[in-house]
Design a protein around this nucleic acid. Structure first.
Length: 490
RNA sequence: GCGAAGUUAGUAUAGCCUGGCAGUACACCAGCUUCCCAAGCUGGGAGCCGCGGGUUCAAAUCCCGCACUUCGCACCA
């Protein structure tokens, strides 16, 4: 099947029909856009994605994982720069009420800078005589639109915010974790959880949400020892696809450092682990790239920035932002809080630098679905070829026919498997229909009980991708499934 | 936020112009059949027709408002 025959709509349809995800607030008309729910199969896929992330990144690189609060006080976001920087100055036309970003309309105006006040922007609008690009009407006064959701805590409605990224608690907690958990540089601290952004125009289901999952990793390192990574050899030969703005070329992590395409081994090591993780997650790596961001695209804190992107039917999609943030975060929190964020690295006292990998989980799951879905025209079926260790349903347990005690025997086998494996019991309808349903949900294996089972204690084990079957003794079944769905390791 | 088009069962849709019992296909459930790949037969469940208001004896249908979706613009740590 050609890649082009699977598009956004067929993934969306699969998601709705097979319980992967659907809009939140179903029956109510005032449900806002940008909020989606995961159904049973979506939860299963997400759980396995996160488990693979823990194995392939957190545990493999000896990181520590925390789980921080989603609500944080204003001071955190003063220190992080979000209160000042996570806002867009907007102006609205008084005639047609179209809204524009003021800094885009005034691009190139030397009197303005990031964080110009509304009055400075109004002055620039007046001085240059800017009017509405749409209808030519007069522009109203500018205001700042902050993308953070504000909250009122307690009866006094004390201000607080839903976090717009998970990582701030990692920075705030870093000194405590480093001390109490006996950390040593370089130290990765990881967190998976929800973040919230008040997007003006959320679109395309999981691709742009107002409430979404992130998996973030902050690697704290000594800026003087960025090439001092013991495990670098593990990924030295790992290929990554680097995109420099015009061309994409595949290089090994080692070569990327030698040629200066990647600044140091700390960055290259983690980028290599990331690439291996996504390969294991079932994304088609030939349709991915690490894109180097230009100066104008970089976030305001980043000194070097790579976006890990995947090609899907709607275009290139950013899955992970990899930023070298230097000491921006720790020095910001040190200054705002008055606490000390320096730590000892051997006999050297350093304020660690941070390399961040900020992963969008929802987008990653969408990409896995799109890259895994195929139409098998020859056998007239739709197949979700998830890697076996990623599948929300690992094994279907079917009776070929219900009578002569086959149903009862099937249920016994189902009960013996379901605690260890995600199993699905099905008696009803034609066997081919049941196989196809399992194919569409991505179940890699199906066990079928037939009359021979009653005679010799064997069942058939069918593989989703090839439709091939073999006979397996019931006693060996759990082991066979375990081997098939095991998580990969280096 | 702007513009356009939409919103009817799990999914895709007909009906709307011209107001009068909400239908079809696939999917789903049960039974029969069937010893391995969406077969067939019989039966069944499923929808406050996006939400709210108005007109009318009567609204999926006409009018108004709102929400959401898609596409384009704009936006996007």
């Amino acid at each position: 099947m050609g890649a082009g025959t699977v598009d956004y709509d067929s993934v969306m349809n699969l998601a709705l029909e097979r319980g992967f995800y659907f809009p939140s607030g179903g029956p109510y008309a005032d449900a806002q856009a940008g909020f989606w729910e995961y159904g049973p199969n979506g939860v299963g896929l997400k759980a396995r994605f996160v488990e693979l992330w823990r194995r392939s990144l957190v545990r493999r690189a000896g990181m520590m994982e925390i789980d921080g609060s989603q609500v944080m006080p204003p001071s955190v976001f003063e220190a992080s720069g979000h209160l000042a920087g996570f806002t867009d100055p907007v102006v609205q036309c008084t005639a047609c009420s179209a809204t524009y970003r003021a800094d885009k309309l005034l691009e190139g105006d030397a009197s303005l800078h990031e964080g110009s006040s509304p009055s400075e922007i109004d002055a620039a609008v007046a001085a240059r005589g800017v009017s509405c690009p749409g209808c030519g009407g007069a522009l109203g006064p500018s205001r700042r639109f902050n993308m953070m959701f504000g909250l009122g805590i307690g009866p006094g409605a004390e201000p607080a915010y839903l976090r717009p990224e998970t990582c701030q608690s990692i920075f705030v907690d870093f000194p405590r974790i480093y001390k109490t958990m006996r950390g040593r540089l370089p130290l990765g601290i990881a967190q998976v959880g929800k973040s919230f952004r008040n997007e003006i125009a959320p679109r395309q289901s999981l691709l742009r949400l107002r409430e979404f999952y992130q998996a973030e990793i902050e690697v704290f390192c000594n800026p003087n020892r960025l090439d001092d990574i013991k495990a670098f050899g593990e990924v030295a030969g790992t290929a990554i696809r680097l995109h420099d703005g015009s061309a994409t070329r595949e290089v090994t992590c080692e070569r990327a450092v030698e040629t200066g395409a990647i600044a140091n081994r700390t960055v290259a090591y983690h980028v290599g682990l990331l690439a291996e993780f996504y390969e294991r997650a079932g994304i088609d790596m030939k349709r991915t790239r690490f894109r180097r961001l230009s100066e104008t695209e970089k976030a305001f804190y980043a000194t070097t920035a790579l976006d890990f992107e995947a090609e899907v039917s709607t275009g290139w999609l950013e899955l992970v932002a990899c930023n070298y943030r230097a000491d921006y975060d720790l020095s910001g929190h040190a200054k705002r809080s008055g606490e000390k964020f320096e730590v000892m690295d051997g006999d050297e006292k350093v304020l660690p630098h941070v390399f961040e990998m900020s992963m969008g989980i929802d987008r990653s799951l969408y990409t896995i679905l799109e890259h895994s879905l195929r139409e098998d025209a020859e056998n007239d079926r739709t197949v979700l070829s998830l890697r076996p260790h990623m599948a929300p349903v690992q094994v279907g347990v079917l009776s070929l026919v219900k009578k002569d005690g086959l149903a009862e025997r099937t249920e016994e086998i189902y009960r013996s498997l379901r605690e260890e494996h995600s199993a699905f019991l099905d008696h009803s309808g034609a066997i081919g229909r049941r196989y196809r349903r399992l194919d569409e949900a991505g179940a890699p294996l199906a066990v079928t009980v037939d009359h021979q089972t009653l005679e010799d204690g064997t069942v058939t084990l069918r593989r989703r991708d090839t439709m091939a079957q073999e006979r397996v003794r019931v006693a060996d079944l759990a082991g066979a499934i375990r081997a098939e769905v095991a998580f990969p390791a280096a």
